[in-house]
C-alpha cells in the first residue's frame, strides 16, 4: 500500500466503478461546495502559489542568461551523471523488484512476511539516514567498502555511489507495482501452456511477462522519476566533486549558497519541467493502457 501502487490501483478501481458511479445519484450527497472550496484553497496556497513564484523568477531572466545558466558545463555534467545513474538504478531496480515480487507472490516460506514488510523500509527511512548509512558502509573502512576495495572497486565518493543511493531509495516502486498484478494473474493460461508441454521459460516469456510488463515499466519509470530528484541519500555518498559526481538537485543548492537565486531557479525549472513531463506521460500512458485492457 505504497503511494506507488496506490497510483496504479486508483486507475484500476476507477475503471471498475465508473459504471455504478453514473447510475447512483450523486446530487444527494452533501459537502460539494465545502470540499471544493477547501481543496481549491489548499491547492492554490500550497501548490500553485509557490509554483508561480518559481515561474515569475525564471520569466524575469533573459533567454540568453537562462540558456547560459542551464547549459553551463558544470550543470551539463550534473545532468549527465544524474540521468545515467538514475537510468542504471531504475533498470537494476526492475530486475531486483521483479525477483522479489516473484518470490513474494509465488512461494510460501518462513520469513516471507518479514521480507514483505522490509521492502517498504526505503520509503519509511529518512533519506539523510539512508545517506549517512550507505556512505559509512561503502567507505574504505566500511563493512562493504573493505571487501570491494580488495576487488579494486570504489563506490563511495564516485558516481557508482550515486547509483547505490538511488537504488536504495527507489527500491519499493517496482515490487509494489508488479506484486498486485502478479497476484491477479490467471493461472489457467499458465496451466494450459504447460499442458501443451511448453518449457518453463517459454511460459514465462509468452504468458506471464506480457501480463506484467506494463506494471514493470510503471515501477521502473516511477523509480526513475524518484531517482532524478533524489537529494538526501545521494549527497552523503557522492563526494560531490564538480564535473564528476554532482547531481542536478545539488547544483540548485550550490547556486543558492552563492546567493545566485536566478541561476538556482533556472536549473530548478529544468528539473521541474522534466519531472512534470514524465509524470504526465506516465499518467496518460497508464490510462490508455487500461482502456485497451477494458476494451478486450
Amino acid at each position: 500500500m505504497t503511494p506507488a501502487n496506490q497510483l496504479s490501483k486508483s486507475f484500476t478501481y476507477k475503471s471498475l466503478i465508473s459504471k455504478s458511479f453514473k447510475v447512483t445519484g450523486r446530487q444527494v450527497l452533501p459537502g460539494f461546495a465545502l470540499s471544493l472550496g477547501i481543496s481549491l484553497l489548499f491547492i492554490s496556497l500550497v501548490l500553485l502559489l509557490p509554483l508561480s513564484g518559481l515561474l515569475i523568477q525564471t520569466a524575469g531572466m533573459s533567454w540568453a542568461d537562462y540558456w547560459a545558466v542551464v547549459t553551463d558545463p558544470r550543470v551539463m555534467a550534473s545532468y549527465q551523471v544524474t540521468l545515467l545513474m538514475a537510468l542504471g538504478a531504475s533498470l537494476l531496480n526492475g530486475l531486483v523488484g521483479l525477483l522479489v515480487a516473484w518470490v513474494l507472490v509465488r512461494y510460501t516460506f518462513p520469513g516471507k512476511r518479514l521480507i514483505d514488510a522490509l521492502v517498504d523500509l526505503p520509503f519509511a527511512l529518512p533519506t539523510a539516514v539512508a545517506g549517512i548509512t550507505l556512505a559509512t558502509l561503502f567507505s574504505a573502512s566500511g563493512w562493504y567498502g573493505q571487501g570491494l576495495a580488495k576487488l579494486g572497486i570504489q563506490v563511495a565518493y564516485t558516481p557508482l555511489g550515486i547509483l547505490i543511493a538511488m537504488l536504495f531509495t527507489s527500491l519499493p516502486f517496482v515490487v509494489r507495482n508488479v506484486q498486485p498484478v502478479m497476484e491477479d494473474l490467471n493461472s489457467g493460461d499458465e496451466e494450459a501452456a504447460l499442458s501443451l508441454s511448453a518449457k518453463d521459460w517459454t511460459v514465462f516469456r509468452r504468458v506471464i511477462f506480457p501480463a506484467i510488463w506494463p506494471a514493470l515499466v510503471m515501477g521502473v519509470v516511477l523509480s526513475f522519476i524518484r531517482s532524478l530528484g533524489e537529494f538526501g541519500a545521494v549527497i552523503f555518498i557522492a563526494g560531490n566533486m564538480p564535473y564528476l559526481s554532482e547531481v542536478t538537485s545539488l547544483m540548485i543548492f550550490v547556486r543558492l549558497q552563492e546567493f545566485d537565486y536566478a541561476a538556482a531557479s533556472a536549473i530548478a525549472s529544468v528539473i521541474l519541467m522534466a519531472s512534470l513531463l514524465l509524470l504526465f506521460a506516465v499518467n496518460v500512458w497508464q490510462t490508455r493502457y487500461l482502456k485497451r485492457l477494458k476494451g478486450n
Binding site: 497510483l7 519531472s275 499518467n283
Partner: peptide, 27 residues
C-alpha cells in the same frame, strides 16, 4: 485536480524548498 496532487511526489524536494524560498524569502 487528481494530477495536481501528484506534483509533490514528482518534484525534487530541493525544488520544492526553492519555490518557497523564492516566494517568501527576503528577496
Amino acid at each position: 485536480l487528481m494530477t495536481l496532487i501528484d506534483i509533490p511526489f514528482a518534484v525534487s524536494p530541493v525544488v520544492a524548498g526553492l519555490m518557497y524560498l523564492l516566494l517568501y524569502g527576503s528577496n
